[in-house]
Simulated scan of single mutants.
Amino acid sequence: MCRWLAYYGDTIPIEALVLLPQHSLIDQSLHSREGATTTNGDGFGIGWYDELGGLPGLYKSIRPAWNDRNLRELAAHISAPLFFAHIRTSTGTAVQETNTHPFRHGRWLFMHNGLVREFPCVRRDLLLAIDSELIPELEGSTDSEVLFLLALTFGLEDAPLTALALMAGFVEEVGERHGVEHPLQMAVATTDGEQIIAVRYSSEGQSRSLYFSTGALALKAQHPNIEEVQGLSDEAHAIVSEPLGDLVEAWKCVPESSIGIVKPGPDEFYEFTPRRPQRRR
């Protein structure tokens, strides 16, 4: 399906994670080890926050990530304290820029790996639940963008953990009404530029892979002789679909049905349980 990564910490060049690691996102676009598909060539996108505040920047393309010179130029010259990067494999919707991730609303970004099963059958009901004020922002045809707008409808900007649980619960409710088995598969990340929230969940309990980086302080203590490890910022955090290298201790697999939060200080993890909305919107 897709592969993605999110970074929070000291300001670094985007290429430090997207291009340079042994198993970078560019490498994963051709040689994914843990994805549903080996090749992820249906477009890519990056979203980043600068230190001046304001809206996050976006760059999207329908070209394969491994074959875009502009991506390499931008990633080498843009540095940011928080950024998202996503490579796409379509699950049936068109390969077009409006379907590439991340999606943006104000200061919020959102990206997704997974699918809403039987999306053409449930799409109408999901669209009708989106807040009417958000409908003009719907640009593409993918299920991922609909998930984002549903999360916003359920209050993402004010109570993100609750909103994501309500979004997942509503999608499952609609799927069940249409007789869809295992309606939702998602590994999602969203951010307002202050924190990153990531969820690993699927209706069948067999979710797509997701990893959090090990705390930099602990990793430095374990590997005092590895230059790359010693160069990490103490506040460097990464969330990835699959590890960027072979150093096993650098990555922690996120358990099934979990939600994690990255912000200054230790990462936080909680059990993720979808919630059915009391009323349909």
Results as ranks from 00 to 15, higher is better:
residue 5 L to F: 00
residue 8 Y to M: 15
residue 14 I to K: 02
residue 19 L to Q: 09
residue 21 P to V: 06
residue 21 P to W: 05
residue 23 H to R: 13
residue 24 S to M: 03
residue 25 L to V: 07
residue 27 D to K: 05
residue 29 S to N: 05
residue 30 L to S: 13
residue 30 L to G: 13
residue 34 E to P: 00
residue 34 E to G: 10
residue 42 D to Q: 10
residue 43 G to I: 00
residue 43 G to S: 02
residue 44 F to A: 09
residue 46 I to N: 07
residue 48 W to K: 07
residue 51 E to H: 09
residue 52 L to S: 10
residue 53 G to Q: 12
residue 64 P to K: 01
residue 65 A to L: 07
residue 66 W to S: 07
residue 66 W to R: 06
residue 69 R to P: 11
residue 71 L to V: 07
residue 73 E to N: 13
residue 74 L to R: 15
residue 77 H to Y: 08
residue 80 A to D: 09
residue 83 F to D: 14
residue 84 F to G: 12
residue 87 I to W: 07
residue 89 T to H: 09
residue 89 T to E: 01
residue 90 S to E: 13
residue 92 G to T: 10
residue 93 T to N: 15
residue 93 T to A: 12
residue 93 T to I: 04
residue 96 Q to A: 14
residue 98 T to D: 15
residue 99 N to G: 13
residue 101 H to L: 06
residue 103 F to M: 11
residue 113 N to L: 01
residue 122 V to A: 00
residue 125 D to W: 01
residue 125 D to R: 03
residue 126 L to A: 01
residue 126 L to W: 03
residue 127 L to Q: 06
residue 128 L to V: 14
residue 128 L to W: 04
residue 128 L to T: 15
residue 132 S to H: 12
residue 134 L to Q: 13
residue 135 I to F: 01
residue 135 I to W: 01
residue 139 E to W: 06
residue 140 G to H: 01
residue 144 S to H: 04
residue 145 E to F: 04
residue 146 V to N: 08
residue 149 L to M: 11
residue 150 L to W: 06
residue 151 A to K: 02
residue 159 A to K: 08
residue 160 P to W: 15
residue 164 L to S: 07
residue 167 M to F: 04
residue 167 M to E: 15
residue 169 G to H: 04
residue 170 F to L: 13
residue 172 E to T: 04
residue 173 E to Y: 10
residue 174 V to T: 06
residue 175 G to N: 01
residue 177 R to V: 03
residue 177 R to S: 05
residue 179 G to P: 13
residue 187 A to C: 14
residue 193 G to V: 03
residue 195 Q to W: 11
residue 195 Q to D: 09
residue 198 A to Q: 10
residue 199 V to E: 08
residue 200 R to P: 06
residue 203 S to A: 11
residue 203 S to L: 05
residue 206 Q to K: 14
residue 209 S to M: 06
residue 210 L to Q: 04
residue 211 Y to L: 03
residue 215 G to F: 15
residue 216 A to Y: 01
residue 222 Q to Y: 12
residue 224 P to W: 14
residue 224 P to C: 11
residue 225 N to S: 14
residue 226 I to E: 12
residue 231 G to W: 00
residue 232 L to K: 15
residue 233 S to W: 02
residue 235 E to V: 02
residue 235 E to Y: 01
residue 237 H to Q: 14
residue 238 A to G: 00
residue 238 A to T: 12
residue 239 I to L: 14
residue 242 E to M: 06
residue 242 E to C: 03
residue 246 D to E: 13
residue 247 L to T: 02
residue 248 V to M: 08
residue 250 A to R: 13
residue 250 A to H: 04
residue 251 W to Y: 11
residue 252 K to M: 10
residue 259 I to S: 00
residue 261 I to Q: 09
residue 267 D to R: 10
residue 269 F to K: 07
residue 276 R to I: 11
residue 277 P to T: 07
residue 277 P to I: 09
residue 281 R to A: 11
residue 281 R to S: 11
